[in-house]
Structures are given as structure tokens and as C-alpha cells.
Nucleic acid binder design. Structure first.
Lengths: 250, 250
DNA sequence: CTATGACAATTGGTCTGACCACCTGTCAAC
DNA sequence: GTTGACAGGTGGTCAGACCAATTGTCATAG
């Protein structure tokens, strides 16, 4: 750390910038296929060119192409069968949001839709082992808060609630939303948002309440508390987001 | 088709059964890695063995192993960097629902959470191009219904609503739910559920209404109609599901 | 002793070429 | 017309090799 750094705005850290990390060949191939599906150049259930031919067309070796196809197959976009070929099984709609930009507002929008209902379902189903896990996650948070006066994250509680809802589709949707929370952009938002920590006790209280309502089997209250919790969290983060001049405030 | 077939229950079609289709080597490798992550045998941010070593351990060639790793990397579970190794970047929670069984009830549960809110958001945002696409999807449905007296699917309308909500996270969540709708198990449910087609006109009317409410900017009504529409569809399907003895009624 | 920087080992990235297994359409034989 | 062998095309897998980035080591200069 040298002297004379005026702003700590990310992306403007002096005369040097990080070099672009080149995308791997298989990743570029996968990108091209995904783009072709999204733009309708390859329709659903249509066959891709043979591997040897496609590899030659794209200027890569067959193993490299196969790595890309393997990834797309694992992701459920294409399906390869020996002696038959590789066909697209994903529609353009499936692929529309591959690598799409997701704003913090959209993430909260989604979480506000999903998470209160997860709490509601958890309070309706109340499987004993899920309740135990939920209590444990809550206890860990309480312990950390009492001991140190703060806590790093309440995500374990959010995940325990989601797990207790016993719906893989909704749980996966939440995990997808949380995944966007791990970008660099978000990380610095978190750290700046929770700096003053004035409402920390309030957050813990809300977590305490949602666990109680779920365990007691009060779906409506559980959903409502979880919704309020998210709104409070969002408002704190988006306020601090507004203070720092955001590049693209949408 | 020979004589004397008592039941047409799938999976009991005489003395012969379809042979098991062997899972490909890369898929099996990927399964093992996913299982290792899910069971905590490999923790997050931990390094996998080197490719050459892991390939030897698993008894596959390096290209085969690399196909598996490429798939996992494209799916966002691991991250490979040259000279550094391959590290797990997904938590056990991310992987918990890989290949999980999803019941029709759970799919409807999820859709009932997501879709009404998608309609609400669509009615709030109302981007002109989305409204045009929504009208078009509705018009196509109406045209088919008037001409033939029935329609194959109203999914284009559902997707248009989802697109109009302008939230990639929620849209992806719906696509994920709809993906489970395409299994064989579901297909025969659909065909049997919509056999009598008594409420077909009612369905079209609900679709008509939701489009109207969205376009007019009435979020509450749009969400409510979409919710009712899903409940009607669910009840029809699950009723016919109850008539046929379901293997595992959950 | 410390700091520097060249070097070697390790690891992923990519390619070439080959052989095997499966599917499908063709076409001769019946 | 039906049957079934066959050939061509396709994905599945393997072996070995070389390139490139990273990292830790260690001799060397200060």
C-alpha cells in the first residue's frame, strides 16, 4: 500500500488494471453453442453437426469440443447418443438467462418472493430433523452474536429454513439467488452495508422469531417475519449502495 | 401387441423389460465428485487430487476425467486453474438437490409460489415489448382454441408472463420447475388429466384475464387470477392422478 | 541475514491419432 | 414384401505427448 490513493472505488485503482483472464477453449465453444440455441440458429430437438466436423469448423480438437459438449450435457442442454448424434434438448427459453446480469434489486425481488413462502412451507411441514437443524443454526448464530457482539452471516439459518420447506425446486431457486450474492460486487456491498451495525440486534431478533414461528407451526407469522427480515436487510444494503455512486444504478 | 394384457401399468409389460442404459464414464465420474461434495468428503475450497492421479484412482483416462471436470466447471461446482489445481467452489447445500426426486405436488407447490408473483411483477413493470409478446402468445392460444376446439399447451403464455417479470432468477426458477414437467411420468398425467376437457373454456378465460390484468397494470388481480388458474390445473391433474393407482402417492 | 530472481517441479490446457461400440439406412437374398 | 447381413457414420474411450501457468525452492547478491 503506497500513499496518495484518492478513492477506493473498485475498478479505478491507479494506472494498472487486472489483465483479462482468457476464457478456456471449451468454455468458448460452450458459449457459442448456447448462443446458437438462444438465438434460434439451432432449434430444439435439432442435431448438432458431428463432433469431428464441428471440431474442424470451430478450429479446436475433438477432445476440447467434447469437453464443451460434456458440460452442456451435464447442464441438460444437449443429449448425446452413440451412433445417433448430439441433439439440443433445451429450448431458447431455457437458455435465455445464461450468464445474464442480475442486479441486487432483482436478487432481493426474487428472495422476497421465495423465502417467505419457504418459511411458510417449513412451518406447515415441520419435519423433526429439519426443526432440529433449524434450531441448531439459530443457536450457532446466537452464540456467535453473544460472544463477539456481531456475526458474519445468517445464511445458515436461511438455508435451514429452505431445507425444511422440503421442496427441491424452491430450494434450488434460493441457492441460485444466493449464488449471485457471492460476486465481488456484492461482497463489498455487504461489508459496507453492515459497517455501522446499528440494527444487528434487530436482525438476530427476527431470526429468533422466524425459527420460533416455524417450530411452533405458525406459517403466516413465519412468512411475515421472514419477509420483514429481508426487507430490512435489503434497505440497509441498498441505502449504502445509494451512498456510493453506483456505476449503473439501473 | 399380443392378447391377454391385463393392465397397461408402465413397467409391467410382459416378461421383458427395457435394458438398463449404462451411464457414461464421465457421468459416473461427475456423480462421484458430486456425491463427495454432498457428503462432505470434499469440503468447499478444498483441492481435488491432480488430474493424472485422480484419473488413475478412478480407473479412467485423463480425457474422460477431464470431460467430467469440464462439466462440473460449466455447472459452477468446481474451478480449475492452470498450475494451481481444481478446487471445489460449491457448498454441500448447492449440490443437495442434484438429481433429487421431485413429485408433481412439489412442482405445483413451487409454481404456486413463483408464477403469481411473476404475474404481479409483470403487471408492475409493463415493458411495451413484453406486453406485445404476451398479447401475441395469448392470441395464438385463442386462435388455436377457436379453430380446433382445444389447445395443446398454454406454456407459451406462462413463459411470456415470466419473461415480462424481468427477473432472471425467478424466470430460471420457473424454467427449472417446468423442466420436471417434461418427464415421462408427467406426460401421461397430462394426457389423462385433460382427456374430458370439461373446463377447457374456463382455462382459456383465465389466460385471457391474466393477460388483460397484466397489460392494464393490475398486479393484485393478475397474481390472483394466475394463482387460481394454477390451482384449477393442479386439481384436475391430481384428481386424475388419484384415480390411477399411483405407485408412490407420497 | 535478507531480499532477489532464476530454476525446476507440479498442475491444468490442448492436440494428435487411434480403436471400440452403437445406430441407422441400404440392399441383396429369400 | 419380408428378412437380415452389412457398411457407413456417429459418439465413447483411450494412450501419449507437448505447451503454459503457478508455485515453491534455493543459490546468489546485497
Amino acid at each position: 500500500m503506497s500513499a496518495s490513493d484518492k478513492t477506493s472505488t473498485p475498478g479505478d485503482e491507479g494506472p494498472f488494471a487486472p489483465v483479462v483472464v482468457p476464457r478456456s477453449a471449451p468454455a468458448q465453444v460452450a458459449d457459442q453453442v448456447v448462443a446458437a440455441i438462444r438465438d434460434g440458429r439451432i432449434q430444439r430437438f435439432e442435431r448438432l453437426p458431428a463432433e469431428r466436423e464441428l471440431a474442424r469448423t470451430l478450429g479446436v480438437s475433438r477432445p476440447t469440443l467434447r469437453e464443451a459438449l460434456a458440460g452442456l450435457e451435464l447442464a441438460g442442454l444437449v443429449r448425446s447418443r452413440q451412433g445417433h448424434g448430439t441433439v439440443v434438448i433445451a429450448s431458447a427459453a431455457h437458455v435465455a438467462n445464461w450468464g445474464a446480469e442480475v442486479t441486487p434489486n432483482q436478487v432481493f425481488e426474487a428472495r422476497l418472493v421465495i423465502e417467505p413462502e419457504l418459511a411458510r412451507l417449513a412451518a406447515e411441514k415441520r419435519y423433526p430433523e429439519d426443526m432440529a437443524a433449524l434450531r441448531e443454526a439459530g443457536a450457532a448464530l446466537e452464540e456467535e452474536f453473544e460472544r463477539t457482539g456481531h456475526y458474519r452471516s445468517d445464511l445458515p439459518v436461511h438455508r435451514a429454513v429452505a431445507r425444511a420447506a422440503r421442496n427441491p425446486v424452491l430450494e434450488t431457486a434460493l441457492e441460485d439467488a444466493l449464488r449471485h450474492t457471492e460476486s465481488e460486487h456484492w461482497m463489498q456491498l455487504r461489508s459496507s452495508a453492515l459497517r455501522p451495525e446499528p440494527t444487528r440486534e434487530g436482525h438476530v431478533e427476527e431470526v429468533r422469531q422466524v425459527i420460533q414461528y416455524v417450530v411452533q407451526g405458525n406459517p403466516t407469522q413465519a412468512a411475515e417475519v421472514w419477509r420483514r427480515h429481508l426487507i430490512h436487510f435489503r434497505d440497509e444494503m441498498l441505502t449504502s449502495l445509494h451512498e456510493e455512486a453506483l456505476p449503473t444504478p439501473d
